[in-house]
Amino acid sequence: MIFAVWAPFLVPFLAAPAARKLADALHPRAAAWVLTTTTVALAAASTVSLGLLAVAGLLRIPLVAALGHLSLPWLSHASPAAELLAGPAAAALLAAVALALRTAHLQVRELRRARAAVAGSAIEDAPPTRAARLPLRVQLRRALRELVALDDHPLAVLDDDRADAYALPGRPGRIVVTAGMLRALPAPERAALLAHERAHLTCRHHLFLAAAAYAAVIHPALRQLRAPLGFHLERWADECAARAVGDRAVTARAVGRAALAAARAPRPARPFLAPAAAAGPVPRRVAALLSPHPGTGGRRRAAAALALAACLAVTATATLDATTDLHRSVETAQASAEHATHS
């Protein structure tokens, strides 16, 4: 058990760089999926391992051992280190839960503020009437219409001269654009911008981002996958926009012009969004739209995929192994206790 239970903590340090390499060689949609499933799987394995360590220690508490009819002498003989490890493991687990709650709190607050900004802005569809007062027939019809129009994301314009645009998830998801941004782009590029934001909402990119945010609080090595995921999601939406407007160059210009317009009106400093060292995400997006067929490093991609698959396989096997190990040791400890009482 002692080795199997540690693997899920160590593997992410190798798996994260492999996942990044693989993602860079894939189509943005596949890249986003690879990054998200990798982070979620590794975070889940880490959580299970922390749980196993904590439970193994919990069994050493005399009361718990008595309730479970476990032989304490056998347990302490089988894995003497369990008691020492259980405390830190439980603390780490609690810390992860606390951080996850904090992330959830921040996300809810952020969404609420963004929604309030839109609700108070110039453009809102007819205010929602209180549903309870409406006859059932009307409610049903409205629900049906909502279902049909699920991919119909209304545009909310903020009367603000600074250029900004984002997708606001919800029901319905909204495309939020400032008047400043709309004025900075000619009509075809505005269409590309709207198509880009619509793609974010239709493909539910906020769920990918949220999954990565929660995984990152569980294992620090997974934090490095958040920025690449954000980049590939933008690329994914760029590709959707290019397809929707039928023009890659127009889409590229829309991204570039929007970024320049946003840079003209600097927003307040954001300490955690440090500028990228080399070429930042926006120029890379523009370049990818302008030259859609970069040299595909087939061999490198295969190597990265193989490394990542190996990492995930090791994690899965180790987690399974550690779980069955704990289960077996509980059963043996019970049998041992039974044996002790009978003899």
Binding site: T103, L106, Q107, E110, L111, A114, D164, A165, Y166, A167, L168, P169, M181, L193, H196, E197, H200, H205, H206, L209, A210, A213, R226, G230, L233, E234, A237, V255, A258, A259, L260, A262, A263, R267, R270, L273, P275, G280, P281, V282
Partner: peptide, 11 residues
């Protein structure tokens, strides 16, 4: 970046 996917990031 946790929830809102913005069109462009800082330059």
């Amino acid at each position: 970046s946790t929830v809102l996917a913005r069109f462009v990031s800082d330059l």
